[in-house]
Structures are given as C-alpha cells and as structure tokens.
Design a protein around this nucleic acid. Structure first.
Length: 224
DNA sequence: TCATTAAGCGTTG
DNA sequence: CAACGCTTAATGA
C-alpha cells in the first residue's frame, strides 16, 4: 500500500477518481523494483497487475517466427500499461524487459476489476489509454515495412512524448542513444546518425544523455 | 555489391 | 566513468 501523496506522484490519473475510488485504488497498489536488463515477464507468463512505470525505462517486445526480437513499444516513467491483459485475465503476449533500473507500481487484479465494475471515472481512464494504444499498434503495421531508420526513430520519440499516455511528461527525455536504439530497433550508431538528421530538420535537439523534442507533430509525420 | 552492424578505441562531458 | 563519435572487419540482404 502507498500513501495518498505517493499515489498522486506516481499515477497521473489519481485525481480523476472520487474519494472512495481513490482510496480503493491506493490500497490496491504496491511498488517493486527491477534492475537493468531483467525480464519483468516473458510471453506466456501471468502478471496480474495493472502496471505503472514510476522511474526507469521498459521495452515491450515480441519474438518473430524467424526468431528475432521486435520492439513493440517503449515505456517510460509515468506510463501505465497492461490493462488489456488484466481485463481479459490472460497470460502476457509479449516480453517485458527493463532497460535500466526501474521502479514499478502494481495494482492488483481484484482492485482493478472492482474499479472497472464500479467506477465510471476509472473506465474513462482505461478507454482513453486503450484507444491511444490502438492508434499506436495500427501505426506499427506500416512502421517496420515502409519506414527508414530515421522515421522509425522519429515515431518512437513521438510515442515517448504522447500527451495522453504521458500527460506529465516534459519535452526533454533523459535517455542514451543506446537505449533509444533498443527501443526502436536500431543500432547505436544508426541511432546517433538519425538523431543528427532529426536535429538538422529542427524537429529535435540533443546532447549527452538527453533528447529535446522541438516539434512533436513533425516527428509523428516524419517520412511521409 | 552495397548497406548495416558489433566491437574496439580515443575523446568528451 | 559512462556516453559519444569514429574506424574497421564481419555479416547479410
């Protein structure tokens, strides 16, 4: 269980819930840490929690038939995920890997289902998240086939700044080029090169350990 | 063949 | 000391 203050810190949606729902949610959440490089879960595992990334960086990936790993999404601090899996009460369909030391907030399934069945505000939060993620996965279909390296990077960056999934996110990301490469399926040097291209196009700026987004619409539409 | 990558190394913040 | 840029040899479409 966590304090009300802590709850507000780690869940951007906390204050959308009314008093009793707020309490219900708060009581159902615990925190857990993972070190860099560890698997939070593999495909097929059960993970019966709605999960928030408090701090750190997480990769959501799948393994193709040919055996290579494909990243489906990156999750940064402030993001909440797994609502689809908890709702359907099924095993995870993807691998979840922490790219750095990461702290998670976990809402247990009983709490999640109770809120789902009784709280309109909670449903509103869920629908908003699911809808946004649907858009992400649709974009992903063309992503791998048609887009070049720089466009891939541009889309990944745009998603890490998604205002619905990360309403509190600043325009500056603290992330290394290697981590960024892991997230969008690029090597370190390809990532660096693409960053320079996006900078030349005035869509971003970057320095050691950080990327600043200057034009999110431009990033989303890059390469069209 | 041409493009991309992992590995190593010197430099930088 | 970790992150970055650059070179090189290997790899693969």
């Amino acid at each position: 269980m966590i304090s009300a203050e802590r709850f507000r810190q780690i869940a951007y949606w906390a204050d959308e819930l009314n008093g009793s729902d707020f309490e219900e949610a708060r009581r159902g959440i615990t925190e857990k840490s993972f070190t860099a490089g560890s698997y939070i879960c593999h495909k097929g595992d059960r993970l019966d929690y709605w999960t928030g990334v408090v701090s750190g960086l997480v990769k959501l990936s799948a393994v193709t038939e040919s055996g290579k790993s494909v990243t489906l999404a990156g999750l940064r601090d402030g993001g909440w995920f797994g609502e689809g899996t908890v709702l359907k009460n099924e095993a995870r369909q993807y691998d979840l890997v922490s790219l750095r030391d990461t702290d998670f907030a976990l809402m247990n399934r009983a709490t999640f289902m109770k809120l789902f069945e009784t709280s309109a505000a909670f449903n509103k939060i869920l629908v908003r998240q699911l809808n946004e993620r649907l858009g992400h996965f649709i974009a992903l279909v063309e992503y791998d086939r048609t887009l070049g390296a720089t466009a891939k990077l541009a889309r990944s960056l745009a998603w890490l700044l998604n205002p619905v999934l990360y309403p509190r996110a600043s325009k500056t990301l603290e992330i290394t080029q290697e981590e960024l490469g892991l997230l969008c399926g690029l090597s370190r040097q390809a990532t660096g090169q693409s960053l320079r291209q996006l900078q030349a196009a005035r869509l971003i700026d970057f320095a050691h350990n950080s990327v600043q987004i200057l034009d999110d619409a431009g990033l989303r539409n890059f390469g069209e």
